[in-house]
């Protein structure tokens, strides 16, 4: 398991996956901030004065952090931001699930799809958080990064493995 979690290819795949997910998720919110603002209002958790500001800023945090994860600019910081956002989503959804607050604005006219159930969103967000925490905690050199601030010996994964095997070999009688 450790070997799997330390594999830089796994890190790259997971990092790109959540990066793309957040970039994708930000698009329709950026295209229609008024609709997103209404969803935030619908949560009934935020003061009226902050609703629009959240709707303006949050999609761009998603976009920037997502892009940073894909391109590998401050990947650890981007993962921290993504995790922060995901924790906030989880808290907001849980709060509404617990108090049984459902917001039906009656906006879904015609053939618009009904929204997915909250527990499914919650489950998905917990999965995303797991992946985010993995990317954040990944201790080694990351592949395909434009700007990685952590200092590592810049040797490849296979070299690291070889070094470990070699050192173990030396200890053997």
């Amino acid at each position: 398991m450790n070997r799997f979690l330390n594999n830089p290819h796994v890190e790259l795949t997971v990092r790109w996956l959540i990066g793309m997910l957040f970039v994708y998720a930000s698009f329709h919110k950026i295209a229609a901030p008024s609709g997103f603002a209404k969803i935030i209002y619908g949560y009934g958790l935020f003061p009226n004065i902050s609703v629009n500001l959240i709707a303006i800023i949050v999609p761009f945090i998603e976009l920037t952090a997502g892009t940073a994860l894909i391109t590998g600019v401050y990947p650890k910081s981007a993962a921290l931001i993504i995790n922060g956002l995901t924790v906030s989503f989880i808290l907001a959804i849980s709060a509404n699930l617990i108090r049984g607050h459902e917001f039906d604005c009656g906006c879904f006219s015609g053939k618009s799809a009904t929204p997915e159930p909250a527990w499914l969103t919650l489950l998905r967000d917990i999965g995303i958080l797991g992946m985010g925490v993995f990317v954040y905690r990944y201790p080694r050199f990351r592949y395909f990064c434009l700007l990685q601030t952590e200092t590592f010996s810049r040797i490849s994964h296979s070299d690291q493995e070889a070094a470990v095997t070699a050192s173990k070999g030396e200890l053997l009688p």
Binding site: I30, A31, A32, P33, S34, I56, I57, P59, F60, I61, L63, T64, A65, A68, V73, Y74, K76, S77, A78, L80, I81, T149, E150
Partner: peptide, 26 residues
């Protein structure tokens, strides 16, 4: 370094958000 990255990325995001919101017809 991580916190520095967080501030830089957040700064870019906040700047972009207000800029795009200002110029976008939406």
């Amino acid at each position: 370094n991580t916190l520095k990255g967080v501030s830089i990325l957040s700064g870019i995001a906040i700047f972009l958000s207000f800029f795009v919101n200002y110029v976008s017809p939406a």
